[in-house]
Design a binder for these strands. Structure first.
Lengths: 137, 137
DNA sequence: TTCGTTGCAAAGGATTTGCAGCGTA
DNA sequence: TACGCTGCAAATCCTTTGCAACGAA
């Protein structure tokens, strides 16, 4: 997956292809981990020193709606965002220190019956938090 | 479990037993589901019309630190809180409509190896969302 | 009396919105 | 040209904090 794939997908929906939008996707892609909006903005300012936070949030929301980006809430400093590189359903191990993610080996929903009878399941969330091999040292 | 058990626990830590604190625990206990701070405050105002939001948040934070209350973030309108009635480790099915919770039958972490080698696991989060038998109608 | 608790007012941080001008297609 | 995108400023929403008065033990 590269930036152009994602931008192409947006263009097909009638959205435009701007330098700032490209930069947002670029950065998320080269990070490939959960980062806060703040971190993202900081990196964007290297290229676009005056980019406004609203633009970033508007783009993140658009990318979320298009399922290109996913959001998770852990730690401090607001939501964190990461790009969805794989289209296959899976969950993540998330490093509490650097935000790096690693796919988990299983999805619990498929393993056994988790949910008591009588409930309609719409979605589920599974996340394992800890420290990656680099950060645990 | 009843309100006095929880308040007793707080008293042993040197915290005081006020009417408002009791009311907060009472309401959380009679709800036994995830509710937003807003909903909680609304219900508290029946008994204490002028209770302030800061008192509620301060108490929720205290109860969280004492592991009496747990917080989850889903849906709109900020964090949601519920009282921990059972001391046994488990996860929940959460109704997206009414916030009702139901213990899940398994904890995925015990079932198989979920996490690739080399990662230190600190915590995990598992939640299933959907509609309960009442709300799905 | 002591020290935790509360309300008030204000601040804080994250995120969103209306609007007018700009830029892509 | 048309319509999406952007920055600005302001607003909104949720949550926290300092301070002085209050209240439980």
């Amino acid at each position: 997956m590269n930036t152009d794939n994602f931008l192409q997908q947006l263009r097909e929906q009638g959205f435009k292809l701007t330098g700032k939008r490209r930069a947002i996707v670029d950065i998320l892609l080269e990070q490939d981990r959960y980062i806060t909006a703040k971190e993202l903005i900081k990196k964007l300012r290297d290229l676009y020193p005056s980019i406004s936070v609203d633009t970033v949030y508007r783009n993140l929301n658009l990318l979320k709606e298009e399922k290109i980006v996913e959001e998770s809430e852990f730690g401090e400093g607001g939501s964190r965002f990461r790009i969805r590189c794989s289209s296959q359903h899976h969950h993540h191990f998330v490093c509490l220190s650097c935000g790096r993610t690693e796919p988990l080996l299983e999805c619990p929903m498929g393993l056994v019956d988790m949910v008591p009878k009588g409930f309609d399941v719409v979605s589920h969330r599974f996340e394992v938090h800890g420290y990656c091999s680099q950060c645990k040292k």
